[in-house]
Design a protein around this nucleic acid. Structure first.
Length: 585
RNA sequence: GCGCCCAUAGCUCAGCUGGAUAGAGUACCGCCCUCCGAAGGCGGGGGUCACACGUUCGAAUCGUGUUGGGCGCACCA
């Protein structure tokens, strides 16, 4: 039978399908879907097909169930089928099939759990993509942890995955950072100026100014008076708002520095990007591509994308600006792509960026965005549709905010005034493993209460330690046994018959299914929950049985083979989440 | 005001293509180390699945409405 070893669910679905074709034929709208049962008395897999067909066949569900069962082809993996309740069909997996699982896991090793759902399709996952204008904070951390886990999971599910970070190196924010740094640099040389409240306040700006000073001395010093040109003094009658003031400061800076402005701009960008990359690397998050927004402008892609929209008659002029008719594509209002001052908006480069993604031939493009960006989905998809590309290829995964709690109270955070907790601080406080796990242990579309004390605690309350402890415990047992692992590969596992052993075996069988579900739904938390359950069953087993029993070598090898398989699956699952599987703790 | 998301045990959350007695963890109470790691296990109490109506053989799950939260509604990114 051409059956990929552990896909019992698919196998049973398949034979039930064959039976259904004979019996019911008819109702092709009903999907045959088996689910794992909650109770052992209900077998291993269950299906409600008979109840779903009851209406269209005008028959009693139990009667239909019996017909289906009678038509069921033989299967070497099927112990028995039962009709239960209102008409459930319960499948019991042959115990011998379950007992083979440790061997399959040990043989496949780190590959156990991998599947072929993706069938080699190309998927791109873009995540984090924070402005390189300062350190990453804990909000970015959740996107990073989620995105990285999704990449791992999709990859395990048979997709060819490309990870990407979109670098917003073109906008006004970068100019503000360059300005901020230069002002701090001037301060080092004693310039007496008022540092704008809406410029970047963080101490890292001073650090960068210091670096410039150390490398180039006073080379970039210019008289401060030039900077204040066209900017009314505080006591002047002419009042301009703070943002406009910043714009004029930027313009003056560019004029004063001339060619040197590019140096400052480039320096701060390189510094921040380097810091960001380093921070993420220590978090276990790496990218295949760092994609520059500026490159879209340099290559004329932005102008081209806008021109394309013009060709499709999707643009119009109003109040000096160029608008995209996104309302024609489901958005709630039209959006500006080119401002009255001639500059393209962020939205314009974002359109170009997505066009570029589509041109690169991905079968699916996944954007991981903060939940505050949900309003952008309609306009980006609208633009993709307007350009007659397939917007269904784009999936936007929204990540809700994470709120830190320390001593039971919310840690205050506000982006302005630079009073936020950085990802780096979080990592240093709770460690990489706990941070990665906590970020993905909730559904990403739910708010996350991040309990710092819990994440730090080295106790049973901490789910990370609970799982890692199970892994370390197994390693410890195996080390104590000190036998030849080859013996486990050949172990006779027929003796694994207790309730907890059968439950553990089934749990191991479930893992590939779990990975597939997590990939389909882009939900790493499924893996996190699965691992907690697997660890829990192992801990129960540990307390209920002894593994090192030399007087009963058959039992001993069977049990050791089972827990070694558990160890492997714990490790494979933790790896998907970017969490280490330590041998000792 | 309009749009999106959410409401499940004291707390933090799973479960949601409609199915069998709604589950974990934590907290609380009681047990288990002459024994492979007690960073563990076992048992107990704890629920109007926000509320109302509807769809159906069947609703925590789907629909409508109400209430209460979060977020978004820039020629910012």
């Amino acid at each position: 039978m051409p059956l990929s070893q552990t896909d019992f669910k698919i196998h049973f679905t398949d034979i039930l399908q064959q039976a259904a074709v004979q019996v019911a034929l008819p109702d092709t709208t009903v999907r045959i879907e088996l689910t794992r049962t909650k109770q052992a008395s209900h077998g291993d897999y269950s299906c409600n097909l008979a109840m779903q067909l009851a209406k269209s066949l005008h028959k009693n569900p139990r009667e239909i169930a019996q017909l289906l069962i009678d038509a069921l082809p033989d299967s070497p993996y099927l112990e028995k089928v039962e009709i239960a309740g209102a008409g459930f069909i319960n499948f019991f997996l042959k115990i011998g099939a379950k007992q083979q699982i440790p061997h399959i896991v040990l043989q496949q090793g780190s590959a156990y759990g991998r599947g072929n759902l993706g069938d080699g399709k190309k998927v791109q996952v873009e995540f984090v993509s924070a402005n390189p204008t300062g350190p990453l904070h804990v909000g970015h951390g959740r996107g990073a942890a989620l995105g990285a886990s999704v990449v791992n999971i999709l990859s395990a599910a048979g997709y060819v995955v490309a990870s990407e970070y979109y670098v917003n190196d073109a906008g006004r924010q970068m100019d503000i950072l360059a300005l901020s740094t230069w002002l701090r640099y001037l301060e080092i040389f004693g310039a007496d100026l008022e540092f704008p409240t809406n410029a970047y306040q963080g101490s890292y700006v001073r650090d960068m100014a210091q670096l410039i000073e150390e490398a180039h001395g006073d080379r970039y010093v210019h008289p401060a008076e030039l900077l204040l040109e066209h900017i009314p003094a505080a006591d002047s009658d002419i009042v301009i708002d703070d943002e406009e003031k910043l714009n004029r400061l930027i313009a003056n800076t560019k004029k004063i520095l001339g060619q040197d402005y590019a140096y400052i701009h480039n320096f701060v960008l390189t510094e921040q990007l380097g810091d960001c990359r380093n921070d993420l690397m220590e978090f276990g998050v790496e990218f295949d591509t760092w994609f520059s927004e500026q490159s879209l402008f340099d290559g004329g892609m932005v102008a081209k994308a806008v021109a394309l929209l013009e060709e499709k008659k999707c643009l119009y002029q109003q109040d000096g600006a160029t608008w995209f008719r996104s309302t024609d594509f489901g958005d709630e209002k039209d959006r500006v792509v080119q401002r009255a001052n001639g500059q393209f908006t962020y939205f314009a480069s974002d359109i170009a960026y997505h066009v570029n993604k589509f041109e690169r031939g991905f079968d699916q493009v996944i954007d991981v965005w903060g939940a505050d960006h949900h309003g952008y989905i309609a306009r980006v998809k609208g633009a993709i549709n307007a350009l007659e590309l397939d917007a269904d290829k784009l999936i936007v995964a929204l990540v809700q905010f994470a709120v830190l709690y320390r001593d039971g109270v919310k840690v205050p955070m506000s982006t302005r005034s630079g009073e936020f907790v950085t990802l780096r601080e979080l990592r240093h406080e709770v460690g990489k493993d706990a941070a990665r796990f906590f970020y993905v242990m909730r559904r990403s579309d739910q708010h996350l209460d991040f309990d710092l004390d819990l994440a730090k605690s080295q106790s049973n309350e901490n789910p990370v330690y609970y799982i890692q402890y199970a892994h370390a415990r197994i390693c410890s047992v195996i080390a104590q046994w000190d036998g030849d692992n080859g013996l486990l590969n050949d172990a006779d596992t027929d003796t694994l018959t207790s309730a907890i052993e059968l439950s553990l075996l089934q749990k191991l069988i479930d893992f590939p299914d779990m990975v597939e579900s997590a990939a389909k739904e882009l939900m790493p938390h499924l893996i996190a929950f699965y691992l907690k359950e697997l660890a829990s069953e192992f801990h129960s087993y540990y307390n209920a049985s002894r593994f090192i029993v030399p007087e009963e070598p058959v039992q001993q090898h069977a049990r050791l083979a089972l827990i070694t398989a558990v160890q492997q699956v714990l490790c494979n699952g933790l790896t998907l989440l970017g969490v280490s599987a330590p041998e000792k703790m």
